[in-house]
Amino acid sequence: MFETIRYDVKDGIAWLYLNRPDSLNAFVAQMNREVKEAFKAASNDEQVRCIVITGEGRAFCSGQDLSEVDEKMDHGQVLRDHYGPMIKQIRQCEKPIIAAVNGVAAGAGFSLALACDFRLVSERASFINAFIHVGLIPDSGNLYYLTRLVGEAKALELSILGEKVKAEDALNMGLATQLISAESWEEDVSAFAKRIASLPTKAIGLIKRYLKAVSENSFEDYLEHEAQGQRIAGLTNDHREGVKSFMEKRKPVFSGQ
């Protein structure tokens, strides 16, 4: 049903491959739409307990396909119509999202990786906030996420200088969760995804939800949100299983419910 991406669900993990390797998985409007739809499907699929997004071929995603850009293009409207809805769908998703950055993540491809919860980076990966090179500003939520990850000074530097960030630097800067060697890439990504998929999924969703509430609320209001979040978590089977397995001195088996 998808043409620009591939989407499979296996063992509780939704694998989303950006699948335009000939153009280094550059975004066209159809890919924006399909990524959005895939995230919606994964969010609604009770089987899914973790989402991995990665690139087919040697790149993660090279950003907007410039062949779609012409003189008449209203850049703001493209964001409102295509990138914005895609990024919002990702932000709304309460399941854990892993960007498995297999190669270059440039421009909106960088933004896409930033919108995920974890960034696993291959030693072949790199990030580049390339917008400045064509006289544009970072978009698709880029600056919003980037400042939160690396602070304003570094975000400014990456955005204005537009230099390539190598995988190892990305790790040191706090952009990446884990640096993975090319040889064990698929295996390690798979293992990480499996680990995430075996955690209490509902609690992860609530952690994501209430992390967002931190910057949106006063401390007093935040405490009320937190109380609601804990009430919801306290009603899950996974909470019961966690406590029970602790008492029984065994490893918990979480169902995600």
Partner: peptide, 10 residues
């Protein structure tokens, strides 16, 4: 505004 899970409870 409350969490959707807790609408009726709240």
């Amino acid at each position: 505004i409350v969490a959707p899970e807790l609408l009726m409870e709240e």
